[in-house]
Simulated assay, not measured.
Amino acid sequence: MRISEFRNAQAADRFRTAYDHALAALWPGPRTPIDAPTAHGLTRVLRTGTAGGRPVVLLPASGGNALMWHHQLPELAAHHQVFAIDPIGEPGASVQRAPIADGADAAAWLEDVLAALDLTDVHLVGCSYGGWVALQHRLHHPGRVGAMTLLDPAGFNGFGVRFYAWLIAGGLAASAPRALRPRLARAVANSAVLEDELMKLTRAAMGFRRALPVPPVLTDEELRRIDLPAQFLLGARSALHDSAEVAARIGRVLPTARVEVVPGAGHSLPMDEPALVAERIVRFGD
């Protein structure tokens, strides 16, 4: 089994420079970096916010890190202590030392992080791949999470041609002249292409070899074991799955869950509807 890593020292240095620049440009207010030891490597966590209430733990989408939440951080930090994670295996400030082969490994890694931070009764928020990791953690290590918000989570459908076409279209849109990007962002339902600093970081991560498992589709039996307060925010224009079908399935299998299909939004919900996402997280976690 391989681990995620940069191709060479030069690629790692380029990314670190871009990461430090993006961190300085995007992070709102003070932060405390924490390096949490785990069986799979050292995990960088950025802590911010005010103590009180249920702590919020943020897991980004595939290829992302703590910085993808920069729009939501001011609102979240005003109400809660926030822990934004650079996941093992993704381009960020964490360093992977052992492979993650499946959902059980991903769940064990997250359990190690929460234990190192001495966190219980957290509000776990996961976007896309991070949503799948959050679900896996609940299946394998119930106990530390008191509530869960999942933004267009993976694990409800395979990664089909439509999703990969969306990724390619987003990359092309991000490379277009600045004046054209808003129109292209609407056309491809991906506001991430308007995030200049994050796009620079994405380009700097081209030298990163990601070696994480592809999420299998969750069974109804697995979903029924998500026995805690949970809300699902789905982009109506998501390229990952048919959101109406996913919403109907969640409503059937998890009738106590809160499900919202966000009109006009795509798969990149934190960028497509930044204020709505922050408000829903704060309201649900209180």
Rank of each mutant, 00 (worst) to 15 (best):
A211N: 14
V214T: 14
T17A: 13
G155M: 04
L234T: 06
L42D: 09
V246S: 02
G126M: 05
D121Q: 14
R31N: 05
H123C: 15
V259L: 10
R283M: 07
H140W: 11
R209V: 14
M199K: 02
A108P: 05
E197Q: 14
A115V: 14
H140K: 12
R203L: 12
L228Q: 06
R181L: 01
Q72M: 08
F15G: 08
N157E: 14
A154C: 05
G41Q: 08
R14F: 07
P182V: 13
V246Q: 02
I168R: 13
T120W: 00
Q96M: 15
G126A: 03
G64T: 08
T38V: 10
R7C: 01
V282E: 13
G143A: 04
D121G: 11
A176L: 05
A278D: 07
P37A: 09
G171F: 08
E90S: 14
A24F: 03
T17K: 11
R249N: 04
P74H: 08
H21M: 02
P60Y: 09
R44W: 02
T256H: 14
L194V: 04
A275Q: 14
A77G: 04
I85R: 07
V95P: 00
P60G: 09
L23C: 12
G170S: 12
D13H: 10
R47M: 10
D112H: 07
Q72C: 10
L240T: 01
V145Q: 02
G264V: 08
L119H: 04
L233Y: 01
P229V: 01
S268C: 11
A278L: 05
P99Q: 10
Y19E: 15
R224T: 07
P182W: 10
R31G: 04
M68N: 09
R16K: 07
P229A: 12
K200A: 15
R44E: 00
P33D: 05
P177H: 08
T48H: 07
L117R: 03
A244P: 05
A104E: 14
F232E: 00
L124E: 02
L201V: 07
Q10W: 02
L67S: 11
E197I: 01
L46P: 03
G160M: 00
R258L: 12
R186D: 15
R162W: 05
A187V: 01
V217F: 04
F156D: 00
M68Q: 15
A248V: 06
I85Y: 11
D121S: 11
A9P: 02
G49F: 03
I226C: 05
R162E: 14
H267G: 06
T120V: 10
R2P: 15
E245I: 09
L135Q: 15
W27S: 10
A98L: 09
L228F: 01
R14V: 04
D227V: 01
H141Y: 06
V45G: 03
L117S: 02
L117K: 03
D272Y: 07
E245A: 15
H79M: 03
R186N: 13
L117I: 02
H71N: 11
G235W: 03
T43V: 13
P274L: 05
A115L: 01
A77N: 04
A98T: 12
L198C: 04
L23E: 10
M206G: 15
G158M: 07
A25T: 13
L180V: 08
V45K: 05
P99T: 10
V214K: 12
S175R: 15
L46Y: 00
A36L: 05
G41S: 10
L124I: 03
D86W: 13
R144S: 13
I3H: 09
I34A: 10
W132I: 03
H140L: 07
